[in-house]
Design a binder for these strands. Structure first.
Length: 290
DNA sequence: GGGTAGTACCGGACGC
DNA sequence: TGCGTCCGGTACTAC
């Protein structure tokens, strides 16, 4: 399940190998073509499959960057710049390979949905098992308003102030803190795994409402989130189920997680409990987290 | 018009 | 073995 650290890992690996390369040919899976024919927005969003394929041919990748959990491919064709925005959803992955056989696992080879053949003969492949991910071709960021509404990057100086201001709004104040910190308008890139870890590290119960946490504790919580995101980036991300980097390698952060997916609290040995918050399973220690 | 609830997008894991 | 149910990040629609 890729969150910010995993996406950062993909971008760091992808940028140096993708920059300067030009797309010669585009293939889209029959599954996506069929879904699009049925009127579904499967993976390729906001454009027909035919138009997508036609537009992408001849595009040169100028850079690859990250914004929250989105990958931005900065493209150029005939002197015009545009943006290919990709979200990995639950099970999406990009691979930079010479042949499909180089993709290390069958489950990823089986679910290739977008394949760019580059002018140098290499392949840039988007695979997505559950098809929750997306690929969106835009003229610029402003063409997809949700991108403009995202909170600042958590590592930016402004992010903590933004978090505190948002969390104080009436619409967030009475919500469980876990729901608040997983909202991309409040903090960018903090999903279930890292929200769970940060709350555990701070001894805060995930169901506690935002208004019942002091400003000082909220500030500390913000820094705990940033710390766990940074730790995970340094560890190559958490490979829970289907995250792989562009070479098919897994990260090691999952070995360092102290609460997510745990049956027993790593600190006090109490059996962990779980509750649903905003539709997601939230694991916590009933002894340590109040 | 803002907030909220429901729904769409899915294959695989898991329990019975 | 086969069936039913659950899981989840984001965007969009309906109310």
């Amino acid at each position: 399940m890729p969150e910010l650290p995993e996406v950062e890992g993909v971008v760091r690996a992808l940028a140096p190998v993708a920059k300067g390369r030009t797309i010669q040919e585009v293939t889209v899976s029959d599954t996506v073509i069929h879904s699009k024919q049925l009127g579904k927005e499967a993976i390729i969003k906001g454009i027909t499959t035919e138009d997508f394929m036609a537009e992408m041919v001849g595009m040169t990748i100028m850079d690859v960057t990250r914004r929250s959990k989105y990958i931005y491919f900065h493209l150029q064709k005939d002197g015009n710049a545009c943006l290919l925005v990709s979200h990995l959803g639950m099970t999406g992955a990009w691979f930079d390979v010479n042949t499909i056989d180089e993709i290390p696992e069958l489950k990823f080879r089986k679910h290739i949905h977008v394949l760019f053949k580059m002018e140098d003969g290499g392949l840039l492949v988007y695979s997505d098992i559950r098809r929750f991910g997306e690929v969106r071709l835009l003229d610029c960021e402003a063409d997809h308003p949700p991108l403009l509404k995202m909170a600042p990057e958590p590592f930016e100086a402004d992010a903590c102030r933004h978090f505190l201001e948002m969390a104080a709004l009436a619409k967030y104040a009475r919500k469980p803190i876990k729901e608040v910190i997983m909202d991309g308008h409040v903090i960018s890139g903090c999903g279930n795994i890292y929200a769970t870890e940060a709350l555990f590290n701070m001894n805060i119960h995930p169901g506690r409402t935002a208004e019942r946490i002091s400003e000082k504790r909220k500030k500390e919580l913000f820094h705990a989130i940033v710390a766990v995101l940074q730790e995970s980036i340094d560890a190559g991300g958490s490979s829970i189920s289907d995250y792989r980097n562009i070479n098919g390698e897994t990260g090691t952060m999952q070995k360092r997680l102290r609460m997510y997916g745990r049956k027993v609290c790593a600190v006090c040995g109490t059996t962990t409990e779980s509750m649903k918050i905003a539709g997601r399973t939230s694991v916590y220690c009933p002894t340590c987290q109040k």
